[in-house]
Amino acid sequence: MKLTKNIKTSAIEVLQKESDALQNLINYIDDDFEACVEAILSSTGRVVITGIGKSAIVAHKIVATLNSTGTPALFMHAADAIHGDLGMIQEDDFVICISKSGNTPEIRVLVPLLKRLGSKLIALVSNVNSYLAEQADFILNATIAEEACPNNLAPTTSTTVHMAMGDALAICLLEARGFTSEDFAKYHPGGALGKQLYLTVSDVIPKNQVPIVSLEASLTEIIVEISTKRLGATAVVDDFGKLQGIITDGDLRRMLQSGADIKHVSAKEIMTLNPKIIAKEEFAIRALNMMKNFNITQLVAMDGENVAGFVHIHDLMKEGIV
């Protein structure tokens, strides 16, 4: 089969057309978009998203994004709506209808039924002069110059901008609601992402013993504490249990190489002052970021002014957040 153009050239043209369309979409973030966001925010209902064909697939994605960012949403297939699925729509719900042309037969049948239910109708369309746009309470304008398909037929650019407009809507709602990473974690408890958002240092440190020596501890005591607790380091505390420093196996090697009198050396002479610490209530992902920033492998976890334990990078690797 003979190709009419270079494969790379064809791929670049597709991406360029879609990129241009996305850039142009910025021009359509207008007062109607803002009013749409404000109306959804003030509503006690959900967002029902409907479409047919490729638009239905885009609708599924936007529903998933809204649900995970604090806006209750559900999908209704435009063809199934007239066969019973209209029953899922409640009085205060908003309905987003996605359609490139805004004039498909299914949309023409569905829209009057939605209006009869009293639902607020949002049109996500690429044709603002369409039947759907004319009937809608709000228009999310996703006009495109052309599809990326060489025949200007296959939904490509249109589905890309529709999805992007859905993302813009979801994130505006997220920010307006003050939706935080902690809120996000409630809806994403599984996998590595979930652990990054909810796993705390206190969830990790109970798995480790707590290596601690006094300021006057001998070299033998230090070595035994580090080796038996298997974390490569020990905290050094004063008589009141307050953290004074840390001794790592690296500190021991440097001390031995210095030719110090190992018979009389004590912890206070070896320790590194002002060790890197983290509160046990902090998220484990912050501990990981601190280790990366300081190029270290462990942090002293603190319970107020007291040593609660150590969090080691191996602990975070085992939890799957590295």
Score class of each variant (00 low, 15 high):
177 R>F: 03
63 V>K: 09
110 L>D: 01
239 D>N: 14
87 G>A: 11
304 G>I: 12
223 I>R: 08
142 A>H: 05
246 I>M: 09
10 S>T: 13
247 I>M: 07
138 F>T: 08
210 V>N: 06
202 S>I: 09
218 S>Q: 06
153 L>H: 07
264 H>I: 15
313 I>K: 11
65 T>G: 03
314 H>D: 07
221 E>I: 09
19 S>A: 15
51 G>H: 04
286 R>F: 06
133 A>G: 11
25 L>G: 05
142 A>N: 04
69 T>Q: 05
114 L>E: 00
302 M>I: 11
26 I>Y: 13
129 N>G: 10
5 K>H: 12
89 I>S: 03
170 A>C: 09
172 C>H: 08
129 N>A: 06
21 A>L: 01
161 V>F: 02
305 E>V: 12
166 G>T: 05
145 A>K: 13
237 V>G: 10
234 T>L: 00
274 N>Y: 12
274 N>L: 15
259 G>I: 00
278 I>L: 04
109 V>F: 14
70 G>I: 04
90 Q>M: 14
84 G>Q: 04
137 D>A: 11
92 D>Q: 15
106 E>Y: 01
265 V>N: 04
86 L>I: 14
192 A>V: 08
281 E>K: 12
181 S>G: 12
155 P>F: 04
75 F>W: 07
322 V>L: 09
60 H>W: 12
277 I>N: 10
96 I>P: 01
125 V>D: 01
160 T>E: 00
109 V>T: 07
98 I>W: 07
202 S>R: 12
228 T>P: 15
286 R>K: 12
314 H>V: 05
141 N>G: 10
35 A>P: 11
171 I>T: 06
9 T>M: 09
216 E>G: 13
237 V>L: 05
31 D>W: 02
147 E>K: 02
81 A>V: 04
75 F>T: 03
29 I>L: 14
242 K>T: 10
259 G>M: 03
292 K>Y: 12
303 D>V: 06
172 C>S: 14
145 A>G: 12
127 N>F: 06
223 I>E: 08
204 V>Y: 05
92 D>P: 06
268 K>P: 10
257 Q>I: 15
131 Y>M: 04
187 Y>N: 10
207 K>Y: 12
84 G>D: 07
301 A>M: 06
182 E>T: 13
219 L>S: 05
173 L>E: 02
273 L>H: 14
27 N>Q: 13
262 I>R: 10
168 A>Q: 11
287 A>D: 07
